[in-house]
Computed example of a mutant assay.
Amino acid sequence: MDMRARPYRSVLYIPGSRERALDKARGLPVDAIIFDLEDAVTVAEKPAARATLKAALGQGGYGHRTRIVRINGLDTEWGAEDARAAAAMDCDAILLPKVESPAQLDALAEIADDTPLWAMMETPLGMLNAAAIAAHPRLAGMVMGTNDLAKELQTRFRADRLPMMAGLGLCLLAAKAHGVVIVDGVYNAFKDDDGLRAECEQGRDMGFDGKTLIHPAQVDIANTAFAPSEAEVDLARRQIAAFETAEAEGQGVAVVDGKIVENLHVATAREILAKSEAIAQTASE
């Protein structure tokens, strides 16, 4: 599957220490799972969680879902051992918390063999260094840590997330400039469907590939919000058809629904169709 088309609509955090949750995740309609060894695991459980998670991943059954292991920071007593353990697990990527410079990714790369790296973006310094972080040759994805960012910024909660827009925007620009996946932060009120839907739609409109989630009840809303709608797919097909007809007639532009369609619009239309087809493929697996 084309990596740009691969869906990351729903990215669910699962504690790496909880066997029941690890098993349940095999049947959830999520695009990716972050198996967490960091915040979701108590200090006492951290060493045992590595073995629990390795066994679950070794057992398999996660299908098309991208399997991402979030380790503790390399500046903690658990981080290096987490990284060595994760590199030996059957996973798709290792996620490093609180990344603030490419040097931290360099340090992880030395431990992680050839496993792709992802970066948690959750501090002001991380925001300011987002471009350099996204340019790291081993980086495949970025995850917004909006709870930690809000804490560091000393913001008040606002439904429009205005206090965090500068940071979100810097990371989005960096990710898009360097072709890496970027997923939005969590929505804490997991019983507030309307609030979640609004924040998912905001993130999708900004350009995020998907949203990190803290509860399975949030999955359907995220999957819907970050998937191309039927109307978008229909328009994409008509744009491509009209442009191809115009080209065959020796013209460089076409008109659909009273709007000019140029090759840049067609490129976007093809991406929409590829994403829609990738989602349909994962749903059938």
Rank of each mutant, 00 (worst) to 15 (best):
D31R: 01
A32W: 06
I34M: 04
F35Q: 00
F35P: 00
D36K: 00
A44F: 14
A44C: 03
E45V: 01
A51Y: 12
T52A: 13
L53K: 04
K54Y: 08
L57W: 08
G58L: 05
G58S: 04
Q59W: 13
G61Y: 08
G61T: 05
G61W: 02
G63S: 02
R65W: 11
R65Y: 06
I71Q: 06
L74P: 00
G79A: 04
G79Q: 09
E81C: 01
D82A: 01
R84L: 15
A86C: 07
A86L: 02
A87S: 15
A88W: 03
A88Q: 14
M89R: 01
D90T: 11
C91P: 00
D92L: 09
A93N: 05
L95I: 06
P97M: 01
K98E: 04
V99H: 06
A103M: 12
L105C: 03
L105M: 08
A107E: 15
L108M: 06
D113C: 10
D113S: 12
T115A: 15
P116E: 08
P116M: 12
L117T: 02
W118C: 13
W118I: 07
M120R: 02
M120E: 03
M120W: 11
T123P: 01
P124R: 05
M127C: 15
M127T: 12
L128D: 14
A131I: 05
A131L: 12
A140D: 13
A140S: 13
A140H: 14
G141D: 02
M142R: 03
V143Y: 07
V143H: 08
T146I: 15
N147K: 10
N147G: 15
A150L: 08
K151F: 14
Q154V: 13
F157Q: 08
R158D: 15
A166P: 01
L168C: 03
L170E: 05
L172R: 00
